[in-house]
Simulated scan of single mutants.
Amino acid sequence: MTDAAQTWHPSPHDTSVRLPSGATDTHCHVFGPQAVFPYAESSSFKPADAPKEVLFALHDRMGIDRCVIVQSGCHGFDNRVVADAIAARPGRYLGIALAPPDISSDALKMLDAQGFRGLRFNYMSHLAPGADEAALRALAPRLADLGWHLQLHMEDSLIAPMSACLADLPVPVVIDHIGRIDASRGRDQPEFAALLGLLEHDHVWCKVSGAERASRQDPPYADAVPFAREIVETFPDRVLWGTDWPHPNYRAAPPDDGDLFDLLPQIAPKPALMQALLVDNPARLYGFKEAT
Score class of each variant (00 low, 15 high):
38 P>N: 02
38 P>C: 08
39 Y>M: 13
39 Y>A: 04
39 Y>W: 09
40 A>F: 06
40 A>C: 06
40 A>S: 12
41 E>Q: 11
41 E>K: 02
41 E>S: 09
42 S>L: 04
42 S>Q: 12
42 S>K: 10
42 S>A: 15
43 S>Q: 06
44 S>R: 14
45 F>W: 14
45 F>C: 02
45 F>P: 06
47 P>V: 00
48 A>K: 05
50 A>Q: 01
50 A>F: 04
51 P>F: 03
52 K>V: 13
52 K>G: 14
53 E>A: 15
53 E>V: 11
54 V>P: 02
55 L>E: 10
57 A>C: 02
57 A>S: 14
57 A>G: 00
57 A>H: 09
58 L>V: 11
59 H>G: 06
61 R>Q: 15
64 I>F: 15
64 I>C: 08
65 D>E: 13
65 D>Y: 06
66 R>Q: 14
68 V>G: 06
68 V>N: 08
68 V>H: 04
69 I>S: 05
69 I>A: 05
70 V>H: 09
70 V>A: 07
70 V>W: 09
73 G>K: 09
73 G>W: 10
73 G>P: 11
74 C>Y: 05
74 C>A: 15
74 C>K: 03
74 C>T: 14
75 H>E: 10
76 G>T: 00
76 G>M: 12
77 F>K: 00
78 D>Y: 06
78 D>V: 01
78 D>Q: 11
79 N>Y: 01
79 N>K: 03
81 V>A: 12
81 V>F: 00
82 V>C: 08
82 V>H: 03
83 A>F: 06
84 D>Y: 05
84 D>Q: 13
86 I>W: 03
88 A>L: 12
88 A>R: 14
89 R>V: 04
90 P>E: 11
90 P>H: 10
90 P>M: 12
90 P>F: 10
90 P>C: 11
91 G>S: 05
91 G>M: 06
91 G>Y: 05
93 Y>V: 15
93 Y>S: 09
93 Y>R: 09
94 L>N: 08
95 G>T: 05
95 G>L: 01
96 I>C: 05
97 A>K: 07
98 L>K: 02
99 A>W: 01
99 A>E: 03
100 P>G: 10
101 P>A: 13
101 P>G: 07
102 D>M: 01
102 D>S: 08
102 D>K: 09
104 S>E: 09
104 S>G: 14
106 D>F: 03
107 A>K: 08
107 A>P: 01
108 L>V: 01
108 L>F: 02
109 K>R: 15
110 M>T: 13
111 L>I: 02
112 D>E: 15
113 A>S: 14
114 Q>R: 13
114 Q>P: 04
115 G>E: 04
115 G>S: 01
116 F>P: 01
